[in-house]
Amino acid sequence: MRGFGAAALMVAALPVHAAECRLALALAVDISSSVDATEDTLQRSGIVAALTSPEVEAAFFASDLPVALAVYEWSGRYNQEVILDWKMIDSRAALVRAAEVIAASTRSHNDFPTAMGYALGFGAQLLARSPDCLRKTLDMAGDGQSNEGFPPASAYREFPFQGVTVNGLVVNAADFEGEVGLIAFYRGEVIHGPGAFLIVADGFDDFERAMRRKLERELTPPAIGSLGLEGDAG
């Protein structure tokens, strides 16, 4: 017993591991061929406006621990490009600089299909090299269902998604049947992990509002969402 007590005191004396940040957040932007140039511009400007909105800025700095942010674009199976590599958002200046990088970015591809499984796998690998954060979240935004390569379920089996939450931002399809099918696809196959949720944008003109609402929900402590569908709240 005496030896056990000494061992317990030694363990208690060991330094407690401290995380660098409270959340590693990766935003995935759909640039498949169904997204035209105007819509791509609305996405990029929408992300920039959402990130720098007063509500999202307040959510970024609602805790003493900062947030790590990365952004990448995706389309075909071999077409993923990092727009913003991991940036620690520990001040308003850092947030503005991150937004400026996104604002200055240009589309890398415009003629490839929607390889959602590959996009998810790329996101998992990006998160695997993120700073040491308490939680990890991947945001998948898109206007169509996966139509190339392996499905999301395969990505969740084969890539390191343990402890990762995948949220979705659906951009409504032009016709009602397609819209319902896309929402069902995201709800059934894309969102994944603890507290995962879905936000719906009513077309690309509504992308900024939807992105702002999603970021507020993810960033505001304790940033735990309920599994389900959130439509036009905001």
Rank of each mutant, 00 (worst) to 15 (best):
A155Y: 06
A58N: 05
A103S: 15
P194S: 10
D132N: 04
V82A: 13
D143E: 02
V101L: 12
P194D: 12
V67I: 09
L25C: 04
S105A: 13
F207A: 05
V67K: 13
S108E: 08
A119E: 00
G163A: 02
D139F: 01
E189H: 13
D85E: 14
T165I: 08
I224T: 14
L120N: 03
G234Q: 00
H17W: 06
Y186V: 00
T220A: 01
V71H: 02
A93R: 13
A93V: 15
H17Q: 06
S32F: 07
D139K: 03
L42A: 14
F207M: 03
G188F: 08
G76Y: 08
T106A: 08
T137M: 02
L95M: 13
D143K: 03
I89E: 08
P222K: 11
L23N: 05
P152Q: 01
M10Q: 13
M211A: 13
M1Q: 09
Q162K: 13
G178Y: 12
A19H: 15
T38Y: 05
A59C: 12
R187V: 09
A50V: 01
A68L: 04
A196E: 11
D111R: 09
L198D: 08
V56W: 04
E81C: 03
L127H: 00
A24S: 14
G203F: 05
A98K: 11
F60P: 00
L27R: 02
L25I: 02
Y156G: 07
A49Y: 01
R22C: 11
D30V: 09
E230Q: 07
V16M: 02
Q162R: 11
G225Q: 13
R97K: 10
G76W: 05
R213G: 11
R213D: 09
